[in-house]
């Protein structure tokens, strides 16, 4: 049955309309969890607020399990799901550059749009920066074209690289995430700050 657009159950235009609705859900959930606050997001890296870790990994696990079960029930064809390809050097290099941007800016692209929507001017500045950064990439593309396309590995899954089944891989990731949640809860007590109210309370 799913994905609906690949199986031509909905038209490309309906797909775009649903993208808008899905975006509303995405933005609403991000904001309700305080992803519109740069101090909350940055708190991840100082331990005083580990909401990012909890929301991010719970979402990833929910997504993994959801895909597994929907595939089991025949609701979605996993072979039609897009797997982002792995170009190892640019995946690492891009990630490192994004990490610098995260600790300096306090946002990532999705959260900055969410924060700007409730009036955060620092998020607006960050968005201005994203546009400049993307323009820098496209304008100076010949400079990094080779690096961008180097070490292409296809679209491997972590599970196949480790020689595990999808289910066992997911179970392992859930166990790792539970361990990280425990560390996160500990860190919020250990690194709590007088000038910062967790969950606005």
């Amino acid at each position: 049955m799913g994905p609906l657009v690949a199986n031509e159950i909905i038209s490309p235009d309906t797909n775009l309309f649903l993208a808008f609705l899905i975006g509303i859900g995405f933005g609403f959930v991000l904001e309700s969890n305080g992803f519109s606050s740069s101090r909350r997001l940055a708190g991840m890296f100082y331990g005083y607020d580990t909401t990012v870790l909890k929301v991010f990994f719970t979402a990833a696990i929910t997504g993994m399990l959801g895909l597994l079960f929907m595939s089991l029930f025949g609701w979605i064809d996993l072979s039609l799901i897009y797997i982002n390809p792995t170009y190892l050097w640019s995946a690492i290099g891009g990630g490192v550059i994004m990490g610098v941007g995260f600790i300096l800016g306090g946002y990532c692209p999705g959260t900055s749009f969410c924060a700007a929507s409730i009036g955060k001017l620092d998020a607006l500045a960050f968005i201005g920066g994203i546009f400049l950064g993307v323009l820098l990439f496209t304008e100076a593309y010949p400079l990094w074209e080779n690096f961008f396309n180097a070490k292409y590995l296809g679209s491997p899954l972590l599970s196949s690289v480790l020689g595990l089944s999808r289910g066992v891989m997911t179970l392992l990731i859930i166990l790792v995430a539970l361990g990280m949640f425990w560390v996160g809860e500990w860190a919020e007590k250990r690194f709590a700050r007088d000038d910062y109210k967790l969950n606005q309370k």
């Binding site: 290099g93 891009g94 990630g95 490192v96 550059i97 994004m98 990490g99 610098v100 941007g101 995260f102 600790i103 300096l104 800016g105 306090g106 946002y107 990532c108 692209p109 900055s112 500045a125 960050f126 968005i127 201005g128 920066g129 994203i130 546009f131 400049l132 950064g133 993307v134 323009l135 820098l136 990439f137 496209t138």
Partner: peptide, 10 residues
């Protein structure tokens, strides 16, 4: 930070 994130994301 936005400039870095924009460049890195691409």
């Amino acid at each position: 930070g936005g400039i870095f994130f924009g460049l890195g994301s691409q």
